[in-house]
Computed example of a mutant assay.
Amino acid sequence: MYTYVEMNRVNFSIVFGVNIVLLLFVGSAFTNPTKTEELNIEDFENYNNEINVEDEEADAKNRNAVNSPLQRWPSNILLYRISTDYNKDEVDNVHAALQVFNESTCLVFKQYDPRIHGNSKHIYYKKSPNMCGTKVGFNPLSPMGPHDIVLNPYCLSERGVIQHETLHVLGLYHEQSRPDRNKYVQIEYSNIPQQYWSQFIAYPEMYTTTYNVKYDYESLMHYSQFAFAKDSTKPSMRARNGTMVIERKMGQIVGPSEGDLTKIRLMYKCN
Rank of each mutant, 00 (worst) to 15 (best):
R159G: 01
T208L: 04
G27S: 10
R238K: 15
Y2L: 01
R238C: 14
P256L: 05
V245P: 04
W197C: 00
S224K: 13
W197V: 00
S190K: 07
S190Q: 05
A65I: 02
K88V: 14
N62S: 11
L98T: 00
A202Q: 03
K61Y: 12
I253F: 11
A58W: 00
N8R: 05
I192D: 00
V245A: 10
L78P: 00
S157W: 02
P146G: 03
K249Q: 13
P204T: 08
P129F: 11
K269I: 01
N212K: 11
S236L: 10
L220I: 12
I20T: 05
A239N: 08
M7D: 10
I51K: 08
E103Y: 09
Y112H: 11
R81H: 15
Q199V: 08
Y189N: 00
G255A: 02
R72W: 05
D180V: 02
V169G: 02
I264R: 03
I149T: 01
Q225H: 15
R159M: 07
A227T: 06
I14D: 09
Q252S: 13
S157P: 06
F138G: 00
Y86V: 14
V10M: 10
Q176E: 07
T34E: 12
G251F: 14
L22A: 09
V213D: 01
R159S: 02
M237N: 12
Y203E: 07
S68C: 14
E205C: 10
W73Q: 01
V5L: 08
K61L: 11
N119L: 10
S236E: 08
N49V: 11
Y47W: 13
L23Q: 08
R265D: 12
G137R: 02
L39A: 14
D92N: 15
R265L: 13
P256T: 06
L151W: 02
I162Y: 00
E258T: 12
T166Q: 01
E54N: 11
Q195P: 10
R240M: 13
L170N: 03
T262P: 04
L261K: 07
A227G: 10
H147G: 08
E247K: 15
Y207L: 15
A96C: 03
R240Y: 12
N152Q: 04
I253S: 10
S157F: 06
V213W: 04
A229D: 06
Y215V: 06
M144V: 15
N67K: 15
E42I: 09
Y189M: 00
K35I: 10
Q99F: 08
N40P: 05
Q111Y: 13
T31I: 13
S232V: 15
E90S: 03
S83E: 09
N52H: 07
K269T: 02
A58G: 04
P153W: 11
S120N: 05
F25K: 00
R181W: 04
L141G: 12
L172N: 06
K183A: 03
H117A: 05
T134C: 06
R248N: 13
Q186V: 09
F109Y: 06
D89I: 13
C155I: 08
D43Q: 13
R72M: 04
P146H: 10
H164V: 12
G242Y: 07
P146W: 06
E205F: 14
F228M: 02
G133A: 02
S104C: 13
Q111H: 15
R240C: 07
L70P: 08
L23N: 06
G242D: 04
G171M: 02
V91E: 15
E188H: 15
A227L: 08
I116R: 13
V53Q: 09
D216A: 02
V66Y: 06
